[in-house]
């Protein structure tokens, strides 16, 4: 009996990481070319942007909220940076700052809708998502932005994506091998560490978890519940805009059609993260592992010639398994505690 419960405990805590290790081993043996630094970096690169968005949504999950607008904030940032550089002919830093400010502002509006207007989080951010999807198309009359495009007022767009901006998405740092690690991967890892520190080591993070667990008790303990909730949505908005900037820098054009999958993929990564180390709650490390898990699985399957249209199915399956891990298994653990 004791042994049995230890086993369950072990499975809850390390099951997901073991599964990850097993996957890596399996693909290394059966998918030629999977094992190797270039392939590993490719995995990281493929999940960097969704991972960054997922870290933001993790913060809103921590305060027991949810942000459905991240995908559209990212695509808005993508279009906005292109618009600033190509049509308004602004330098890269202006475009980047404007996008970050936009992300923070959208987060602020989300937060105010939720805490002041008392709109339920899912509905408020769903509304914001729609609004942004529409808004980002208005300035260009629904077209993608690229250098030389015809302007609505006549004439052609003269601006270009500056080299400094493209560097953000395309530059690769030397790391043992020449031109190995792309900038987005570094930003992803950096943001992951920062948000992990914020959530786990600072008193602000601790209070945010307290708010997510028992809002009323936290308020009675003197926590600024409304402030922290708004802050969580602002973090989410800013990280989403960072994701959008990196996407723009990688594509080199303001493409209206890109970024369709960002919302679902990043939410999935954050939810898969619940299962990592048996946390059963949103956490930055789990979110990063969740994103990488999906990346590895897709990379491996692609190398073993799985067709692209099976990808969403695989992601969905991983998510469902992770949720069972989180809720069924650890629910049993908690239930026996009474």
């Amino acid at each position: 009996m004791q042994k049995n419960s230890n086993l369950i405990h072990f499975a809850i805590r390390y099951g997901f990481l073991l599964l990850l290790a097993g996957l890596v081993l399996y693909f290394s043996i059966f998918a030629p070319g999977f094992a190797g630094p270039r392939s590993a970096v490719f995995v990281f690169q493929s999940v960097a942007i969704t991972g960054i968005l997922a870290l933001g949504v993790t913060c809103t999950l921590v305060v027991d909220g949810f942000d459905l607008s991240i995908g559209s904030v990212a695509t808005s940032a993508l279009m906005m940076s292109a618009y600033f550089m190509v049509i308004l002919e602004q330098p890269a830093w202006v475009a980047v700052l404007a996008c970050l400010a936009m992300g923070a502002f959208v987060g602020l509006v989300n937060g105010l809708l939720i805490v002041k207007m008392r709109v339920p989080d899912l509905l408020a951010t769903l509304g914001m998502m729609f609004l942004l999807i529409g808004l980002q198309r208005i300035p260009t009359e629904g077209r993608s932005i690229s250098t030389g495009m015809a302007l609505p007022g006549g004439g052609n767009a003269e601006g270009t994506f500056s080299a400094a901006f493209l560097w953000l998405g395309r530059h690769r740092f030397d790391f043992f091998l020449e031109k190995l690690i792309p900038v987005p991967v570094i930003i992803f890892v950096l943001l992951g560490v920062l948000i992990w520190i914020f959530l786990h080591l600072t008193r602000h993070g601790r209070l945010m978890y307290a708010i997510g667990s028992n809002e009323r008790a936290s308020e009675l303990a003197g926590a600024n519940v409304q402030g922290y909730k708004i802050a969580a949505y602002m973090i989410s908005g800013v990280t989403a805009s960072i994701g959008g900037i990196l996407l723009a820098a990688r594509l080199g054009r303001g493409d209206v059609a890109s970024g369709n999958n960002l919302l679902l993929d990043s939410v999935a990564a954050a939810l898969i993260g619940f299962a990592v180390l048996g946390a059963a709650k949103p956490n930055a490390f789990g979110t990063a592992v969740g994103a990488i898990f999906v990346g590895i699985l897709l990379q491996g399957l692609t190398m073993m010639n799985a067709p692209y249209y099976t990808q969403d199915f695989v992601k969905g399956a991983v998510l469902v398994v992770a949720l069972v891990f989180t809720f069924a298994l650890s629910g049993r653990k908690r239930g026996s505690g009474h």
């Binding site: 080591l201 600072t202 008193r203 602000h204 601790r206 209070l207 978890y209 307290a210 997510g212 667990s213 028992n214 009323r216 008790a217 936290s218 009675l220 303990a221 003197g222 926590a223 709650k281």
Partner: peptide, 27 residues
């Protein structure tokens, strides 16, 4: 109104006074 169910005893007990236990916000 009181218990934060996901926290341990330490975090529950010190919840209102986290400021007293942190430097530069680091707990």
């Amino acid at each position: 109104n009181g218990v934060v169910p996901e926290f341990d005893i330490t975090n529950n007990l010190t919840l209102p006074f986290l400021k007293n236990f942190s430097r530069l916000s680091m707990l």
